[in-house]
């Protein structure tokens, strides 16, 4: 075998091997996705065809001889043979033209393909496949799913450790709420979750030293000695801080409904503004809420 072919095979194999190795990065490989498969097939075809076609012509440089009838003209001493078209090339050119005309007139005439139609189908297929899969997940698996949502959607603000440190200006999700935030709510009131708690919380339910005491108490998870001013709060949030439907949320700990509410409505508070994340589907919201709740479980 000629050395050239050996080289061709080595180069093609190296390129394809490298491409194949990159698939190792991907959690689910080709994922059964036809688009992935076609892209890889296209890449493979590209390397193989180019290498072997070029080798064909290089072989001709090595073993063939120039021949044919020269044209009368010559430009700056460059001559020109009157050789016929290379057969393979001519056939392929004709073939692609015929294919193009077919595609355009019979295969997919003007309105035969709709990318939005294709999209709707894709979404439907994927959604129904996954709905089945996660319909009944709970517990740790739900938390895992939530983590994966968190890593894509929330990290930009709350960070990898979910501590939303100062530079990031977002809430620390490892604790229910900070003193700073409680104080802010008491002083400014809050009405982010209109659909769940239509009345909102009015400003100025406490003042002076009470605010500090309340803040400490609430941020501490309602443990230890109750400040006297808590009575006002208990009116809505309940004595144990567990809240009441339509009146006030649970401030003693995380609860799923509260987190989903924040995803649906966003939140403007002491730290800043959290955007509405309602493009998540209900299961994803449930999952990410489970994940957030799991963060402070150990304590």
């Amino acid at each position: 075998m000629n050395k050239l072919y050996l080289w061709g095979i080595i180069i093609a194999a190296a390129m394809l091997g490298a491409t194949y190795a990159t698939l190792g990065y991907l959690k689910n490989g080709l994922n059964g996705d036809i688009i992935n498969i076609l892209a890889i097939a296209g890449a493979a075809a590209l390397v193989i065809i180019t290498i072997f076609v070029v080798i064909k012509y290089v072989r001709q440089m090595q073993v063939d001889q120039a021949s044919g009838e020269l044209a009368d003209e010559s430009w700056d001493n460059i001559g020109e043979y009157k050789n016929p078209l290379p057969f393979g090339w001519a056939i392929m050119f004709l073939g692609t033209m015929v294919w193009g005309i077919w595609y355009w007139t019979i295969g997919y005439p003007v309105n035969a393909f709709s990318q939005i139609g294709q999209y709707n189908k894709e979404v439907k297929t994927l959604n129904s496949a996954f709905e089945k899969k996660y319909a009944n997940i709970k517990g740790d698996e739900l938390v895992n799913m939530g983590e994966s949502v968190y890593l894509v959607e929330c990290v930009a603000c709350h960070g990898l450790n979910a501590d939303g440190n100062n530079e990031k200006d977002a809430a620390d999700l490892n604790q229910r709420i900070s003193e700073k935030s409680v104080k802010y709510v008491i002083n400014h009131g809050s009405n982010n979750l209109k659909s769940a708690y239509p009345g909102g919380m009015p400003a100025g339910m406490a003042s002076g030293a009470d605010v500090d005491k309340l803040a400490k108490y609430v941020a501490g998870g309602l443990k230890g000695e109750k400040p006297a001013a808590w009575a006002t709060c208990a009116g809505c949030h309940g004595d144990n801080g567990k809240g009441q439907p339509f009146v006030a949320p649970d401030i003693a700990g995380w609860n799923q409904k509260f987190i989903v509410n924040i995803l649906d409505n966003g939140k403007k508070g002491a730290i800043g503004k959290m955007p509405v994340m309602d493009r998540l589907n209900p299961k994803q919201k449930e999952a990410v809420a489970a994940y957030v709740m799991s963060l402070s479980e150990g304590e």
């Binding site: 990159t22 994922n31 892209a39 996954f130 949502v149 894509v152």
Partner: peptide, 27 residues
Amino acid sequence: FTSMWIAGITQGMMWRAHDEFGNLAYS
């Protein structure tokens, strides 16, 4: 071209990838 070839194909597939729950697999 080899580095950009591999980078591009990896990038393109990662953007599309979803995990076993149907969420985006990569940020």
